[in-house]
């Protein structure tokens, strides 16, 4: 029996997307973003301001002097880096109450999402793309459909994995077969309800490259690649492990060879420890303590 009616009902109770993150999202693609505009977004949110200062002062950025104010952080890090921190920080509120299902522990989805954001940012740098905050954001939010579907996946996990194992289907196809819908479709629907920019919605909807149109947008391909590289890296893997497709077309599209992938994984491994500060945004002490639990 299809669970679609129940799943659609749960979309009706979707909480609002956190406001600060929403406002920051709208600024991501703005060509000439002023520092004042960014300050306006966060200045009334003390928790986010505190996070900005914490991350700006972490080993991840490796700045030599201590940053005490929002203005100083903006000047030293620039608007793109600041947007990343603001969006990640705003989005924690969404991920904080995620239920298990895809992951065996509570903050697994958050850590996978942050990892994809950081990997997408790293790929963008590798490919010399200017829109790094866009890439980070798309990586961070690509799996939001799992926030809604996790309860249903939890109930049907054994049945989904049986399809994966007996028919050799990737996880999201098996998910669709058993639940009637997959996390990318639900995520796309959430992005529509939350009024995300179109391009971000398309990344969320198509990140598993499930139809020919998915191959026509660079950003969709980049997030797909970031996602599979994060799976290969391991750490914070979901219960389904690496049961997804790897498409050689994507490598060809970006002109990447196997050795380039190894270099990217190596680079990711090197920033991994310093990036723990992003994981820690959610329930601070707990985040760091569990950073290595899969």
């Amino acid at each position: 029996m299809s669970l679609i009616p129940q799943i659609l009902r749960s979309l009706k109770n979707l909480p609002p997307f956190p406001m600060v993150a929403q406002r920051a999202l709208m600024l991501v693609n703005k060509p000439e973003l002023s520092i004042q505009e960014l300050v306006e977004v966060i200045k009334f949110d003390p928790a986010i301001t505190a996070n900005v200062l914490r991350i700006a002062n972490s080993a991840y950025f490796g700045l030599r002097r201590e940053i005490h104010s929002l203005h100083q952080a903006l000047l030293l890090l620039g608007t793109q880096e600041l947007l990343k921190i603001i969006i990640a920080s705003g989005a924690t509120r969404l991920f904080a109450n995620a239920t298990p299902g895809y992951f065996s522990e509570r903050h697994g989805l958050w850590r996978h999402s942050v990892s994809c954001g950081l990997m997408a940012d790293l790929l963008a740098r590798e490919l010399t793309w200017a829109e790094r905050a866009t890439c980070f954001t798309a990586g961070l939010l690509h799996d939001i459909g799992k926030l809604v579907l996790s309860l249903f996946v939890d109930q049907k996990f054994a049945a989904i994995m049986e399809v994966v194992e007996t028919q050799g289907k990737p996880f999201h196809r098996a998910e669709k077969e058993i639940l009637g819908v997959d996390h990318a479709e639900i995520g796309g629907e959430m992005a529509r309800i939350w009024d995300f920019p179109d391009r971000l919605r398309l990344v969320i909807r198509h990140h598993h490259l499930d139809c020919p149109e998915s191959f026509s947008d660079n950003l969709v391909l980049l997030i797909h690649l970031a996602d599979v590289l994060v799976l290969m890296f391991g750490q914070n893997l979901g219960r389904e492990g690496l049961a997804y497709d790897g498409y050689p077309e994507v490598l060809k599209h970006f002109g990447l060879r196997e050795r380039d992938l190894e270099k990217i994984l190596l680079h990711f491994g090197c920033i991994w420890n310093d990036a723990q500060v992003f994981f820690g945004l959610i329930g601070s002490a707990h985040g760091l303590q569990c950073a290595h639990r899969g």
Partner: peptide, 18 residues
């Protein structure tokens, strides 16, 4: 233990096998 691979054609994403 380890060395997992993604699904797909065997000539790509070979880090696990290598």
């Amino acid at each position: 233990a380890g060395g997992s691979q993604l699904f797909g054609r065997p000539e790509h994403f070979q880090v696990g096998r290598r």
